[in-house]
């Protein structure tokens, strides 16, 4: 089976600044890869590039079999990204937000409700406007949107930030079951410990380039 992600010497620009300056990355299907690196090293850009949001300036980038330098749009429906921004409409309720996102990805309202159940946003909480949620609850809602879309590649950017112990356990559980279902996962995180239990490999990002670190047993 082809690699889920295959990047070769990829350069990507934000304005005129090279956020990625020749990055390489390979992720096999069903693999969990941890990205490490200081702030501004290019972790988020790497994830955004894999999601087809950041154009490839040069180099080769294949994600889920699609060549991003030719078409960056096809891959977007198939990846799920959880970033710093939670992409919620403040005026809509949690349920409406998740339903919109899931149905836009081709799912049904029932998929959305099931996802809400999975992340524990049910009852009154599901009908609360997103503007009234706490930061942690917003992230749960964003997670529900992601889960409901059943992506083949999960791109998680600092997913543990602002989550309590319960939610962290929940996230780990969701990642594990997604991987069991054949999805691949890339996690960018400063935090050691918890993530390393999930990840099979660690890749270090610095100065817009990547280095493979020691294999985690």
């Amino acid at each position: 089976m082809a690699e889920a992600v295959l990047l070769r010497n990829v350069v990507a620009l934000a304005g005129r600044f090279p956020v990625l300056a020749g990055a390489d990355l390979t992720v096999a299907p069903g693999q969990v890869v941890l990205l490490r690196g200081a702030n501004g090293a290019g972790k988020t850009s790497l994830l955004r590039l894999c999601a087809g949001l950041l154009p490839v300036a040069s180099g080769q980038a294949l994600v889920l079999g699609e060549d991003l330098s030719l078409d960056s749009r096809g891959v977007r429906r198939r990846v799920g990204m959880l970033g710093h921004a939670t992409q919620l409409y403040d005026d809509l309720s949690v349920r409406d937000n998740v339903r919109f996102s899931v149905r836009a990805g081709g799912g049904s309202a029932r998929d959305a409700d099931a996802a809400l159940e999975m992340v524990g946003l049910t009852g009154r909480l599901a009908d609360t406007p997103a503007s009234r949620l706490s930061a942690g609850q917003r992230r749960r809602a964003a997670l529900a949107s992601l889960v409901g879309r059943r992506p083949e590649l999960w791109l998680l950017d600092e997913p543990y930030a602002g989550l309590d112990a319960d939610a962290r356990g929940l996230l780990d559980g969701l990642v594990t079951s997604a991987v069991a279902g054949g999805a691949s996962v890339i996690i960018a995180s400063h935090e050691a410990g918890q993530v390393e239990a999930l990840a099979q490999r660690t890749v270090t990002v610095a100065g817009g380039r990547t280095t493979e670190a020691v294999l985690v047993p």
Partner: peptide, 8 residues
């Protein structure tokens, strides 16, 4: 980003 990622 959400709109672009949505696949709409």
């Amino acid at each position: 980003d959400g709109l672009r990622l949505s696949g709409l």
